[in-house]
Design a protein around this nucleic acid. Structure first.
Lengths: 204, 204
DNA sequence: ACAATAAAGTTGCAAATGCAACATAAAATT
DNA sequence: AATTTTATGTTGCATTTGCAACTTTATTGT
């Protein structure tokens, strides 16, 4: 699956491949259109700004992640948009076209269809992990929870934050200065060790 | 799809249909097993207790919702279990059996497979809505956000809470008394009107 | 119908978090 | 290399939230 999107991504007429530079806006979630996107290169974030100006990183996408308006029901009137964190390559295709058979019956759509439920299932597990994190009651628990997830994924007590501390606060949906204060306590109380964007989880 | 689970739910040997009384434990999420469940009758909740004794309603399931360990990666050592809120009927099947072809090639699995990605996609939108809610910064915004979602779904300014206020607090992952205080302010400031478990959203 | 249990509602106080405003360090841009 | 921009780190103070402990009102079970 890993190389599949690259290899076959440009063979069908019903999809578009676009390139984005760092910082560019990839798409905006406006209404329930059938937009389905695959990130085949780079990293991107789904960002929301609320009425008080708070920025939230709703989702963080890496290679082979899927996103788009099909996955989202817009209830509030907050702006939601996907921004390229690095230079990105994105496949755009109408979801109807993924779900139903492609007219041209191309190889891309056939394989995509076969793996579709697996791709979406992965998204569910990611979102469940995200909910688990956000339901934690304190900044401390959110931080430790997040570190634990990264640690589990990398099979290591030493983890590298995938984004800046400012972004981390927006991802955990907490105030940055309050988060920094909590990080300091965690260091002082011997829970973690910190060196730039590398953090070591200590047994305590 | 709606009646499908009932009609065909008992025709295949590779799945089990079980009944649960209100309050009973339907399943516990322990490890990444391939458990896939369909709630064909009743309502149920995915509950987590953290080390401080806080109860969180991680998810709320209604008729035709799918759940189970396939959707979950257990990272923390918190207990996660699904409890019947009402008398429930649940189909249990191994996910491998859903994904791949069923040996007996029965009608149930065939139709389920056809609709699988749609079912999982629905779950993604539900989870995205949940994340949207949980990333709101204050209890007030969480409450108003939740009311707005229910209002949009029911096409009405008058909404009926699907569970008790105690449960709502556990669902929004906030302290109950703090939530009650906020509800009171919302009433006093003319945002909402309240009558039992019926709430009316006012234009303000 | 009564008792028992659970939910709703309230409050004072403590603790956590958010806000604003900085200083300093690092990274990006010209 | 100098300048601008962005990120990190810190702090005092205000506000929000959580905690504990109640009373009152519903709901459930016998």
């Amino acid at each position: 699956m890993d190389q599949f999107f690259h290899e076959f991504g440009s063979q069908c007429r019903n999809l578009q491949k676009k390139t984005f530079s760092k910082g560019e806006n990839i798409t905006t979630y406006i209404a329930k259109r059938n937009q389905f996107c695959i990130l085949i290169k780079g990293e991107a974030d789904l960002i929301r700004y609320d009425l008080n100006g708070n920025r939230t990183i709703v989702e963080h996408f890496t290679k082979n992640d899927i996103f788009g308006e099909v996955f989202y029901i817009i209830t509030t009137n907050n702006e939601l948009f996907v921004t390229a964190r690095q230079n990105c390559e994105v496949l755009f295709l109408p979801y109807d076209n993924v779900k139903n058979k492609c007219k041209t019956n191309c190889k891309f759509h056939t394989i995509l269809q076969e793996h579709l439920s697996e791709l979406i299932l992965d998204k569910v597990t990611i979102l469940n992990t995200r909910v688990e994190l956000l339901t934690k009651r304190s900044i401390r628990d959110k931080l430790l929870g997040y570190f634990t997830i990264l640690s589990t994924r990398s099979f290591s007590r030493v983890i590298t934050l995938p984004f800046s501390l400012t972004d981390l606060a927006d991802y955990l949906s907490v105030d940055r200065s309050a988060m920094m204060r909590e990080m300091k306590s965690l260091r002082e109380e011997g829970f973690i060790q910190k060196n730039g964007n590398k953090i070591t989880l200590l047994s305590h």
